[in-house]
Structures are given as structure tokens and as C-alpha cells.
Design a protein around this nucleic acid. Structure first.
Lengths: 125, 125
DNA sequence: GCTTCATTCAACCAAATGGTTGACTTTTTT
DNA sequence: AAAAAAGTCAACCATTTGGTTGAATGAAGC
């Protein structure tokens, strides 16, 4: 298995380190959005959001589909895999708690299971 | 008690976004190290490494144990869990590819599957 | 054809980041 | 007691980041 490229991890983790960008990702979990829709609830200019989307794009976490004058953004969930795989080596799931792992797997495999991404309201394993 | 939340994620992901800091974490997987040992292979000053360790410390990923004039650093693998949990909501393992998930789980659960040449310093169950 | 909408681009700014060096503190060694 | 070792701290510097505004681009609507 190839270790994920370091540079890639730089971009992914840096992209995730900003709360605005995480909010954008969370919004995109509910489905595709154009840039204006993403910007609307955020306390900043459209241009700022556009730059955040570029950062997410370079990290491979979001892609844009331009149809007409509207740019539709969508989540690229596979983009997180490298970071996820990197993390696993650090015992993030140093489980004695197999139940937690099982419920995690359940959620991971069940499309209905990903409807509450808000870390504030999540269930710790 | 349960207030990991957004700010915490900022610190964790920002800490992970730097290759030097990831290298330090990787080294610490093999066991505890003092600051000088961590700095030795790195192409920068001791002071720079010390600052990186502060960042890792604030993120909850590394702790220091000061005995005498020597600071021993050790990995806090639980520190990654918040980030890990946050990620799971994004279908990082939205697998059609169940084989990959299975092999991941295998590695996650099997102590031999984690590349840890120093069994004395167990951070995993 | 002009205007409007959706978005990006360019220039700019303040603050944060990642590094340096040199002084300082604390402990160990001699 | 003096010197050396292990780290941190403080001040500094260059670059990056996250934001702004205003102009530019590219459809769509009138």
C-alpha cells in the first residue's frame, strides 16, 4: 500500500483546520450547493468563500461542476481517505471498546448513518 | 466534560498539517523521546522543534514529562479521536469497496498490523 | 445590445506561521 | 564553584493565511 503523499496530507489537513471550511463541508453533506448558497449563511464575502472553495478543491475534498454561470460544488468524500488512513496508524481507534468500533462501522456503511456530522452533537465512542 | 468542539478541531488539524510535526508523531510511535532526540534528524534548530512540540501539545497530541533537565515527549493517541470522529461523518469510508474497509479493520484491530517495532512502549490495546 | 446575476481575479492588509539567533533557566557533571 | 547540557523564551524576519474591496468575466434575461 502506498503511503499517502506527504504533500497531499499537508493540503488535506490544512483545509480541515479552518472552521469555515469545515462548515462548508458539513453543508455539502446535505447535497450539492452553488457558491452563493454556501456563502449565504457565512459571515464573510462571496470572494472569501470562493477562496475557501479553492483550498478545498486543491485538497481534493470538493469539486466544482460549472454549468452555465452557476458553479455547483459537491463533496468528494474519497478525498478524506488519505488523511483517514494516515491517522489510523496512531491508534486513534485504540479500542478496547469494540462496540464503539462496530457502531462506527455500522454508521460508516449505512448511508442513513451520515446525516449528523455536527461534532458538537455527536456521540463519542 | 464534553467540549471538544470546533476549536479543538482547529488545533488538531492545524497541528497535523505540517510535515515536520507529522514526522515527530511518527517517531513517537516507536516510543518516548526527549526533545533533543526528536530534533536530531530534523533539518532545523532545537528551538524550532520545541515550538512544534508546543503546537502538538496544545492540540493534545503529545505530552511532555519533565524529569530533571530532560523533557520526555510521548504520543497521546487519544488526541486524534475527535478529529477521527469528525471525519467519519464525511463518508471517508463510503465504501462500495468493502474489501478495503475489511483490510482496514483488520489492520486496526490487529496489533501486528500496526507497524510498531517497539512492543515495550504500547500505546495501543 | 444592455443589464443583471454568479463567480472569480487582483491588489491590498492584518495576523498567524515557520523558521532563525542569542540570552536565559535549570539540572547535571566535573 | 564553574562549566556544560537540555530546553525554553524573546525578538526578529519572510512567507502564508484569511479576510477585504473593486474590477473583470461569462452566462441569462429583458
Amino acid at each position: 500500500m502506498d503511503a499517502p503523499a506527504e504533500h497531499n496530507l499537508d493540503l488535506i489537513f490544512a483545509a480541515l483546520a479552518d472552521p469555515t471550511r469545515r462548515a462548508i463541508l458539513r453543508t455539502l453533506l446535505d447535497g450539492e450547493r452553488n457558491v452563493g448558497d454556501l456563502a449565504e449563511p457565512l459571515p464573510m464575502s462571496l470572494a472569501a468563500v470562493s477562496k475557501h472553495l479553492q483550498i478545498l478543491g486543491r485538497a481534493g475534498l470538493v469539486s466544482q461542476d460549472r454549468q452555465g454561470r452557476i458553479r455547483t460544488c459537491r463533496l468528494e468524500p474519497d478525498g478524506l481517505q488519505n488523511a483517514f488512513i494516515w491517522m489510523q496508524g496512531f491508534g486513534a481507534f485504540a479500542f478496547e471498546d469494540y462496540d464503539a468500533l462496530e457502531s462506527w462501522i455500522e454508521r460508516a456503511l449505512d448511508p442513513e448513518g451520515i446525516d449528523d456530522p455536527d461534532p458538537d452533537t455527536t456521540h463519542a465512542p
